[in-house]
Computed example of a mutant assay.
Amino acid sequence: MTNTTIALEPISGPSAWRGDELAGTTEWIYELAPGEIADLEAAGRKLVADDPDLRTVTAADYPLPACTRLNEESGRQMDTGRGFILIRGLKTEEYGDVLAGAIFFVMGLHLGQPIGQNQMGDLLDHVIATSDKTLADEGAKPSRVRDRLPFHSDSSDVVALMCLRGAREGGASSLVSGTTIYNEVLRRRPDLAPLLLEPFHWDWKAQDPDAPENTYSSPVVSYVDGIFSVYAGMSMIFSAQRFAEVPRLTPEQTQVLNLFDEISQEPGLALDMNFQPGDVQWLLNYAALHSRTGYLDFPEPERRRHLLRLWLKRDVGRPLVEKFGKHVVTMGEPAGGLLPGGRFAIADAAQPNFEWGN
């Protein structure tokens, strides 16, 4: 599929939201019913008892008969709604991390196929500060520091988070609508907006040190058959300029990339979610960008801010321009192949790997 020119009119629909309009509502929060909670807990306990290789399990192995409405609403919001949903009501503080991780993994199985997130191929990863590094430090991993993160897309169709423990202060999950950002670019600079549909070079080496090529290419915006999708993380486009073989960005390209980033940071656009333990957030990467506010941890290691993360492949036939997003990753496998040390049993996967990402 190829990009078609977007008419110079704003894109409408449920994905074109503003955070300041949603913040005073609960329409984006799904409160679990007692029967749904019981169903999820039973499936999680079965996964813990079975102790399978997580790479082999399917949704059919762990049915959720009471969660039909939950799964349908989660999928609808991601695919054709706002692009995200927050699920609330799980009692993770009572479960312990292993059962919580098992429940989260089963939930993911019913919405897509979990894919590897790091060089070891781990299907369940952790967002937890493992050192006092900052993003400015060489080798720092965004999921392992406490800094505020820029808005970006991940290397999957869906990214999901489960909160085990919140921060002492800060650490809100921030989402912003890609459609709303594009509409603002279009309103302010209609001459520059179409450039976002053209391919840019992205720094592949900065994302995967063992990548076989320095860069890959993708547009920021896909518009096929009337469906708008976004893929962003402008720092990777600017970083790709370090390679001599990459064409230099034109002044107009630089302007539109900077404008896109500037708009994403403007007051009122983003929705900040202060996670409660047990909250689960599902996000379609093509609809919204995500970030995190900076935070302070509790001094005790066992009370550190700790989120579990899933990346899912979710194939619902969404039309996308060819080679859109991080298309160079097949099913999430790292460019250089899997390294030893992957954790594919739930008891291991639910615990952070402190030997990686420090």
Rank of each mutant, 00 (worst) to 15 (best):
N3D: 12
T5A: 15
L8Q: 11
P10T: 05
G13Q: 13
G19H: 04
D20A: 12
G24S: 15
T26E: 15
E27L: 08
Y30K: 08
E36P: 03
G44Y: 00
A49R: 11
D51V: 14
P52R: 11
D53R: 08
L54T: 05
T58S: 13
A60D: 13
D61Q: 14
Y62Q: 00
L64M: 06
L64P: 00
E72H: 15
E73C: 13
E73D: 12
S74W: 14
S74N: 13
G75A: 12
M78W: 12
T80D: 13
L86G: 06
E94L: 13
E94S: 14
Y95L: 12
G96N: 11
D97K: 10
A100G: 06
I103M: 06
F104P: 02
V106L: 07
L109H: 04
Q113C: 12
P114T: 06
I115L: 07
G116C: 09
Q117I: 00
Q119D: 13
M120K: 13
G121S: 05
D122K: 03
A129F: 04
T130P: 03
D132R: 00
L135R: 04
A136P: 00
E138S: 10
P142Y: 01
S143I: 07
R144P: 02
V145N: 08
S153I: 05
D157W: 04
A160H: 12
A160P: 12
L161D: 03
L161M: 11
R168L: 08
R168W: 03
E169D: 14
G171V: 03
A172I: 00
A172T: 02
S174M: 08
Y182S: 02
R187T: 11
R188E: 14
R189T: 07
R189E: 05
R189A: 02
P190R: 08
A193Q: 00
L197I: 09
P199S: 09
F200G: 01
H201W: 09
D208S: 08
A211I: 02
S217E: 07
V221P: 02
V221F: 03
S222C: 06
V230K: 13
A232E: 14
M234A: 15
I237W: 06
A240P: 00
R242W: 12
Q253K: 10
T254N: 14
F260H: 08
D261T: 08
E266R: 07
D272K: 10
N274Y: 14
F275W: 08
Q281E: 04
W282Q: 11
Y286M: 15
A287G: 08
A287D: 07
F298M: 03
P299E: 01
E300W: 05
E300T: 09
E300S: 10
P301D: 04
E302D: 11
H306G: 00
H306L: 00
L307A: 02
L308M: 13
R314Y: 07
P319I: 11
H327Q: 09
H327V: 09
V329L: 15
V329S: 15
V329C: 15
G332D: 04
G332Q: 07
P334Q: 01
L338Q: 06
L339G: 10
P340A: 04
A350I: 15
P352S: 12
N353R: 10
E355K: 12
